[in-house]
Design a protein around this nucleic acid. Structure first.
Lengths: 124, 124
DNA sequence: TACTTAAATGCGACTTAATCGCAACTGTAG
DNA sequence: CTACAGTTGCGATTAAGTCGCATTTAAGTA
């Protein structure tokens, strides 16, 4: 999916800041936080946050907070869940789990917390 | 469960700040954030956060961030999941869901995001 | 190609969550 | 009653996120 198409689909202006931000998100292909990328950003941080908000309200990205108290952002290419390890704090993307449904609710995102495979094995 | 017992089980000192904080958490019986209770707190906010950390490392409370970008804390009396509505931002406690397991992981907490029952009905 | 304008940006100030170092204080074991 | 490790209050600090405003820019239109 090209950046031009993504933007056009949502009827947004394609600015250099937005191109930059989308390129970063596409390239990373995993949840990233502001701190991870602030040095790469040429745009002002206010612009960063305003575009994050814009993208979120257009369902282009989702975000969640990890154990390190930082907010992570990720492109919503392919919807999937995340697992955050309480020990090593690693964020793992899980394969889409489509059997998670709650009667009466529309579930759009799931974040699991607990102990990941690696840490479980090391505790044996 | 009495506060004295909770503290004693964990080999922590029972200070007035900790009694106050636990009383608040017990009384609320739902996830609360710093802002919700800061006016009630007689302790310093550094003390608040230090005790939150202490309680967390002793598995007495868990925390998660909601859509309002505030961190919510809750006593781990009875483990259960939470549903955060992307529309009304309400945090709901769900009944313990014990059929959620991930092969190879230890799941300790689940946060769902999506659209809650109320908002779903209103969108019809 | 130039014009127009709503939307986007940069900047600086601001708010607030969360943390830190340090001196003073306080539970609790002995 | 005492000693001391652990806890607290305080003030300063860091960093995420927001806001208002002047300036700039993308993109449609003539």
């Amino acid at each position: 999916m090209q950046i031009e198409n993504i933007i056009e689909q949502k009827n947004l202006k394609l600015t250099s800041a937005r191109r930059e931000l989308l390129e970063i998100l596409l390239k990373e292909n995993k949840p990233i936080c502001f701190e991870d990328i602030k040095d790469k950003l040429t745009m002002n941080k206010a612009t960063f946050y305003r575009n994050i908000l814009k993208f979120q309200s257009n369902d282009m990205i989702n975000s969640f907070e990890s154990n390190d108290k930082k907010r992570y952002y990720e492109l919503q290419n392919s919807p999937h869940s995340h697992f955050i390890c309480n020990i090593c704090n690693t964020i793992e993307c899980l394969k889409k789990i489509d059997n998670i449904e709650l009667e009466g609710y529309k579930v759009m995102d799931v974040v699991f917390k607990g102990i990941c495979k690696n840490c479980l094995e090391q505790s044996r």
